[in-house]
């Protein structure tokens, strides 16, 4: 346990950091500590929350349209030419049938295409999959008029070696279909077995990586939810 006065000192330091009065060397040193010190980060978060209502009272002012035009230009993908690539690049059988060396090469190319594509994707609905701490573990988005989901790891549930989180879709007849494994980091797309209906539910189960079930989850369901239209 940290002595009380030391704890208080850290807390006030965090307050000064958020307030903006921590300067020069002290600020740099504080930011360095923030990289690794989770408790200190919590204190900074708490100060942001405490002081934030001061901004409530600020009158909103509509910015000139030019600001949005600039922002919009800055997030534009560098190359839009490949925006309409087919599902071919992402089809699983394609990857399986390639030799490893070729696969690596194509993977690099495929990733580039994928990133470019991702920039222009509009999500129709979103689901936040909670992790074991009931915090957002993964984001799942369903793009409009597509038969796949985009899944991005945010704060995945830590699992022992050999275990994985498998995502399932329940169709309108109550049958479960395995969609894929929730990624440990980065993002992934998962093809859907059928077009999405209004009432599709999704489930996540924890499975053994070397014995993935195809018909129904073999172990406990750790999450259930559905997509919400945005």
């Amino acid at each position: 346990m940290m002595p009380d006065n030391e704890h208080e000192e850290r807390d006030i330091l965090a307050g000064e950091y958020v307030l903006g009065t921590l300067e020069g060397e002290a600020r740099i040193e504080f930011e360095r500590r923030l990289q690794t010190d989770m408790e200190l980060r919590d204190e900074v978060d708490a100060w942001h929350r405490r002081l934030a209502p001061m901004l409530d009272a600020v009158e909103p002012v509509t910015p000139p349209k030019a600001v949005w035009d600039q922002i919009s230009r800055r997030i534009e993908p560098a190359d839009r030419g490949t925006a309409d690539s087919s599902g071919f690049w992402n089809s699983l059988s394609f990857w399986r049938n390639l030799g490893m060396a070729a696969a690596t090469l194509v993977l690099v190319l495929g990733m580039t295409l994928l990133t470019t594509r991702q920039q222009v994707m509009e999500m129709e609905s979103i689901m936040v999959v909670l992790n074991d701490q009931s915090r957002p573990g993964w984001l799942v988005g369903a793009p409009a008029h597509q038969r796949f989901l985009k899944v991005k790891a945010v704060e995945p549930t830590p699992l022992p070696q050999g275990k994985v989180c498998q995502l399932w879709m329940e169709d309108e007849q109550g049958r479960l279909h395995p969609l894929g494994l929730l990624p440990h980091d980065g993002s992934e797309r998962m093809d859907l077995p059928a077009a999405l209906g209004d009432r599709n539910r999704f489930k996540v189960s924890i499975e053994q990586l070397n014995q993935l079930p195809k018909v129904e989850p073999s172990e406990e369901i750790v999450f259930e939810g559905s997509l919400t239209e945005i």
């Binding site: 909103p60 991702q118 984001l139 985009k150 991005k152 945010v154 993002s187 945005i230």
Partner: peptide
């Protein structure tokens, strides 16, 4: 707003446009 941010994380520009239109006056004021 949480949903829009989640969609932005998945590179959804339309969601970002909407997020901007809802929040930009507040942030510009700040």
């Amino acid at each position: 707003l949480e949903q829009l941010l989640a969609a932005c994380a998945l590179n959804d520009r339309t969601a970002f446009t909407r997020l901007y239109s809802i929040t930009s006056a507040k942030l510009y004021g700040v």
